[in-house]
């Protein structure tokens, strides 16, 4: 294996690991902002891997646009969550939802 091929493999491996860590963080993190950061990390890792593998510019450009749109939507959502719940931590949001449901069911 040539040094260039080895370098590309290492970059792809690191990028896939970043994608995996970002995806796990986006899935399990309790904090809305950390979840958003995980998404950005996952998408960045996926883009780096795709670029290292020689993907066309159109795919990378599209991915960048999607990241910007996702971050914009995520930040807006975090602000609305803070306004509505006074919190952005998932356990607190779930607890508040359970209380809302219980109070609606109460006679």
């Amino acid at each position: 294996m040539t040094p260039e091929a080895l370098t590309i493999r290492l970059i792809v491996a690191a990028a896939i690991a970043l994608t995996a860590f970002g995806a796990v963080a986006a899935w399990v993190s309790g904090n809305a902002i950390k979840r958003l950061a995980g998404l950005v990390a996952a998408m960045a890792g996926a883009m780096v891997a795709a670029a290292a593998l020689g993907a066309p510019d159109a795919l990378l450009g599209g991915a960048v646009a999607i990241v910007f749109a996702t971050v914009a939507a995520g930040v807006a959502l975090a602000v609305r969550l803070q306004e509505a719940y006074g919190a952005i931590e998932a356990p607190e949001l779930d607890q508040a939802d359970r209380q809302d449901e219980a109070s609606e069911r109460a006679p």
Binding site: A26, A50, P56, D94
Partner: peptide, 25 residues
């Protein structure tokens, strides 16, 4: 709260799609 979960799941799906498209290419 539901929208936040949707955004998270969809974002992970988007990252998988980009990575998958790169590998497929």
């Amino acid at each position: 709260n539901g929208a936040l979960r949707m955004l998270g799941a969809g974002g992970v799906g988007g990252a998988m799609f980009v990575l998958g498209a790169g590998l497929l290419h």
